[in-house]
Design a protein around this nucleic acid. Structure first.
Lengths: 138, 138
DNA sequence: CCTAATTGCTCTAGTAACTAGAGGTTCAAG
DNA sequence: CTTGAACCTCTAGTTACTAGAGCAATTAGG
């Protein structure tokens, strides 16, 4: 059985975050010692690592909850898992596209100014003026 | 003088958001009619468009506040504006890098599964298993 | 001039995903 | 048995809004 601190250091998820996950029902409630402290079975570490990685991948807690549910029922179709992953991939690609447009625009903006007083600073006017943007962003 | 609704539709910023901006001091307090409704001078539209565009560029309200401050003092050095824009550009490039790593990983994950039950679904195990990731992400 | 529809007002509370801090308790080592 | 680290609960704060309740003002049509 692991303490919450141990679970935290092994999973890379902070202690208050673990308690938070329990609170919102993403993590099963832990057993308690006589003194009311949480003790976790090794399986909790697996689960937390799963959650952690999925978070790193950018999935929302809601999506993760669905995946956790799914892995609790190994007999169910994994179509949902595919759907979640694919939807997310679409999302990521979309963000990539918009970030690239953004990068060019910021490059243009920062390159456009070589003055030294705010009054003639092109950065300020470039930010005001959306019409100069080449592509659309966000 | 513009009503808040007009200001909203011309700027693309929603009405409650405009009130929120006023509340946090990002936008000057508007004049009021005898009946307590806000009325805005055309300059408010300029300002809101600036804010809107800066938000679209991904700047935080805090950063925007600095820029607004700066443009209120045209005599001051614009070094700060450069710093803000450059820092943000760095941020964007960083996110771009990580999103690309993410894209490859998601591609790998979704391509890896052709089963139909959650029990043998590679998506679920791939998400558990960070060690398969090629690059680091987030 | 009156009425109805639209737009406006304030206030509270909710969202995501945590994080920070207060104030107190339990545990493990020496 | 004492001490100090780790634990507990609870409240409130973060960012940038959004939603809704309940009511007041404005504007267009008749």
């Amino acid at each position: 059985m692991l303490t919450i601190g141990r679970l935290s250091s092994e999973s890379g998820v902070k202690v208050p975050t673990i308690r938070y996950y329990e609170e919102i029902g993403l993590l099963e409630e832990a057993e308690r010692t006589a003194g009311n402290q949480r003790r976790y079975p090794p399986a909790a570490l697996e689960r937390l690592r799963f959650i952690r990685h999925a978070r790193d991948l950018g999935l929302s807690l809601e999506q993760i909850e669905e995946l956790v549910e799914l892995s609790n029922h190994p007999d169910r179709s994994c179509t949902e898992a595919h759907a979640i992953a694919n939807t997310h991939l679409e999302h990521v690609r979309d963000r990539l596209r918009r970030l690239k447009a953004l990068e060019s625009e910021l490059e243009r903006i920062t390159a456009s100014c070589d003055s030294h007083t705010a009054g003639e600073c092109n950065i300020l006017s470039a930010i005001s003026d959306h019409s100069l943007c080449s592509g659309e962003h966000d």
